[in-house]
């Protein structure tokens, strides 16, 4: 159990359940959506919040834009935060070691997500049959099984690592060569590219690519930070919106003007 007591283990697992319930349910994120708060709380439970905060910050930036939109399954960097913090704090290892263990767990969690969604497909079809037969209560409540599977989706891998993973993790840590450390440090700097690539494909890039250039110039040459650049972006968005509204009004009135001229 990585040298933690049963209370610490249960608290961490309970926290993982809470985060998943919030994610799949109300999405309040009163503890933030970034991994900073997550790392902080797991670290605090284990008595070393500083390491948790640093891991959370690193993973937050790595996973920017990695969100499962439209039902896609993506690597779960929240699970990585839990696992990496546990490994780094409890085994007193550098942060890169925690990531080395946490990232594969996040990759594997993709398959858990796909599995739940696949099982859910069968359950949802069953539920619909119940409704067709007039068994309303059954049909409405049955899909809650999918909901509960999702509520525990983050806690399950975390619990497996805590209760059964120490041997495997220790073995990985012992054989980890220098180049893998360095490689993972570089991966931390390059991984945000995945989120950025997804965002680019998600935005109206063909129509409005010049604003990508604008943001790049403001950051790279004029050295502004992200928040003021966001405000400048907002100004351009509002100008565009107002102009288009005006344009539509003009178009509409232009037609009537044309009509008047015909009358004359």
């Amino acid at each position: 159990m990585f040298g933690m007591n049963i209370l610490q283990a249960l608290l961490i697992i309970l926290f993982a359940v809470y985060r998943a319930v919030d994610m799949y349910g109300p999405q309040t994120f009163v503890l933030g959506w970034s991994n900073v708060g997550e790392g902080f709380i797991v670290g605090a439970i284990l008595g070393n919040p500083a390491v948790g905060i640093e891991i959370g910050a690193t993973l937050s930036l790595m996973s920017l834009g990695v969100v499962g939109l439209g039902g896609a399954s993506v690597p779960n960097f929240h699970i990585t935060t839990f696992v990496a913090t546990i490994v780094a704090v409890q085994l007193n290892e550098p942060i890169a070691t925690g990531m080395a263990v946490g990232l594969p767990v996040a990759m594997l969690s993709v398959y858990l997500d796909i599995l739940i969604k696949t099982i859910g497909t069968g359950i949802a079809a069953r539920a619909q049959q119940h409704i067709e037969k007039g068994e309303f209560d059954k049909g409405i409540k049955l899909p809650l099984v999918i909901a509960f599977m999702n509520y525990f989706q983050w806690a399950l891998p975390v619990a497996i690592v805590i209760f059964a993973g120490q041997g495997v993790v220790q073995a990985i840590v012992n054989i980890m060569p220098e180049w893998l450390y360095n490689g993972l440090n570089v991966a931390g700097k390059l991984l945000p590219v995945t989120g950025m690539a997804m965002l680019i494909n998600y935005m109206p890039i063909d129509k409005h690519w010049q604003y990508l250039l604008l943001g790049f110039v403001l950051y790279s040459y004029l050295k502004l930070s992200v928040l003021p650049i966001g405000m400048i972006g907002l100004v351009f968005a509002l100008i565009y919106y107002k102009n288009e509204v005006k344009f539509k009004q003009l178009q509409a009135s232009g037609v009537s003007v044309g009509g008047d001229m015909e009358d004359e």
């Binding site: 930036l61 920017l64 570089v186 700097k189 390059l190 945000p192 590219v193 989120g195 950025m196 965002l199 680019i200 935005m203 109206p204 890039i205 129509k207 409005h208 690519w209 604003y211 990508l212 250039l213 604008l214 943001g215 790049f216 110039v217 403001l218 950051y219 790279s220 502004l224 992200v226 650049i229 966001g230 400048i232 972006g233 907002l234 351009f236 968005a237 509002l238 565009y240 919106y241 288009e244």
Partner: peptide, 21 residues
């Protein structure tokens, strides 16, 4: 479209600020 413009501006800054190789 307007949200896209805002998003792309921020994205233009995020690419150089988050990718540090």
């Amino acid at each position: 479209d307007a949200v896209g413009i805002l998003g792309l501006t921020v994205l233009g800054a995020l690419i150089p600020s988050t990718i540090g190789i």
